[in-house]
Design a protein around this nucleic acid. Sequence first.
DNA 1: ACGAGTTGGTTAATCGATTAACTCATGCAG
DNA 2: CTGCATGAGTTAATCGATTAACCAACTCGT
Lengths: 339, 339
Amino acid sequence: MTKQPRLADVARAAGVSTATASMALNETGGRRIGVETRERVRAAAAELGYRPNTVARGLRTRKTQMLGFVGDDVATTPFAGQMIRGAHDAARQAGYLLLMVDTMGDPAETGEAIAALQDRQIDGILLATMYHQIVEVPAIIGSTPCVLLDARTEDGSVSSVVPDERGGTRGALAELSAAGHRRIGHVTTIDQVEAKFLRLATWREHLAADGVEPDGLMAEGTTSMSPGGYEAAMRLLRRPDRPTAVFCFNDRMAVGVYRAAAELGLSVPDELSIVSYDDQELIAPELVPGLTSTALPHYEMGRWAAEELLRRLENPEAAPVQHLMPCPVSRRGSVAPPR
Amino acid sequence: MTKQPRLADVARAAGVSTATASMALNETGGRRIGVETRERVRAAAAELGYRPNTVARGLRTRKTQMLGFVGDDVATTPFAGQMIRGAHDAARQAGYLLLMVDTMGDPAETGEAIAALQDRQIDGILLATMYHQIVEVPAIIGSTPCVLLDARTEDGSVSSVVPDERGGTRGALAELSAAGHRRIGHVTTIDQVEAKFLRLATWREHLAADGVEPDGLMAEGTTSMSPGGYEAAMRLLRRPDRPTAVFCFNDRMAVGVYRAAAELGLSVPDELSIVSYDDQELIAPELVPGLTSTALPHYEMGRWAAEELLRRLENPEAAPVQHLMPCPVSRRGSVAPPR
DNA sequence: ACGAGTTGGTTAATCGATTAACTCATGCAG
DNA sequence: CTGCATGAGTTAATCGATTAACCAACTCGT
């Protein structure tokens, strides 16, 4: 295979200068280039199979058509893939590619990662965390356009997208209320994370709006099937005044709740309705009965973040946007009217 | 913040030419640069916070310190993350970054992805598939160095790494044999994939070596908990001469086998031992009892592939290597001696 | 028929490094 | 005292595009 043709080769083949060739191919330079010439250049480029060298172009224009994706743990969470994919799809549609770095949650590593990306002249950075949290943007990011994914800053100085936890929680609880439940329990995590606070607060509000006292209706555990979800559910369900339905912090804990219910002889959903959060592919649809669960919109968040970043590249002066992505409920068989 | 310093700025600050500055910083050009000068340049660079512009360097050297990672489905499989992470870690350690593209399994898209990566002058390409298969390398790849990840070619003309399915299967079966099982059933998938063929063949060999007839000991189903694993297991376990142990194609199907066993009143592991493949984080350790399962070494394969690719960049003439990555067994509670 | 606009290009500078080729002392053998 | 290494840098070309600044030839309005 001979060497890749350069712009100069195309220009020569079309009998014009490289300047003309460049302008013809890029539709740039206004009305300068005649229709017939443009066609000739196009034909020559197609004939030679010319592909512009993005590195050379990048050097001149300072734009590389690459976006940096910095994640704090790409591998171990099952959600990461969807976030990356969303960002990837949006980027690719616009002709951009994603340059990925995983920092394993190490702040020093994050700084180096951002620097490494900047060295490569990426056009912008997506800063992703693997669960919803409040972060500070590293100073090194400087004036590089940046959007936060599944995270936000305290002051809202940077565009960001996070799941609408309150809306998602209301959606899950609405499933229970619609079925007639009032005494709705909550099995939550001991981890002090943003998602916990928001889901817990929304659950409290929901009960309050319904005139129900939350005392004795909440139990905490580690974020795990067992002992976390299981033991918390046991504490909740062994009470004489046990709830008729439970809202779980997430699907993994919900597995423990199923187990506890089975052990106590409570059939789901007839004697105990269950709703949850996360809608994990390997869990929610596979439980018997299927678990009604609110999905975290990772794909959509990834997509939105990349689109927002691209928008900011066009228009760097636009005010930052804090976006709440809706969390849709996947309705399955774990909800029924209370007995 | 003022503009990034260029090499020329460093050179001026150190009172030398850019050529000298470049050679001093890169340890290149042999003994040309005096010790004292080198130090002076180094100090100036550090002082100014100089970082070389990789785009400019790439244009000149035709090396971008970037590797392309082309996956056929980055998002939907839970394994992808580990593969990416392995490749990422190896690349990063060597100063490389990963440029990712997901083709969603579309061959046309794959071609475009490779072209897009080549336009960006990536130094090499990792071609990953999300499950072990035999592929052809797209012609467009030309002379770009390339390593296959979780795939191989028919003719072995390209370096590749795939899981050692036979070794992994022998490992799983050895757990059962060591416990004293001889009539070992196999629940496998109807999908005609490489993994199925290899695991099935190895299981047959294992039985043959033990003088056991495989008739009636195998059942197929879709690759799912239910109906796949469940129904296949039911067919196998309802027979009067049912096996005392089952080797499952993967963890998802094993969940169905657990369910079938429970339904038939067979306790695991006392009345039925179970081993499986994949060792999925959300499944194998969470079942009760924990499922003994052979892990697919995705992280290690990703790492090996990137390392091999980097080796080939150094030495493009080296003969291609077909690597089999060992699959270690995670021992849990699902195996006991037959009654 | 002359200056002012268009049209449709071309020339050459530039982006920021790397590196081949050259220069200029010095040292030293013969 | 000539001539050839050797050491330590410098000059300038180069990678492959983009684009600001020019330029020549026409078209018109007055």
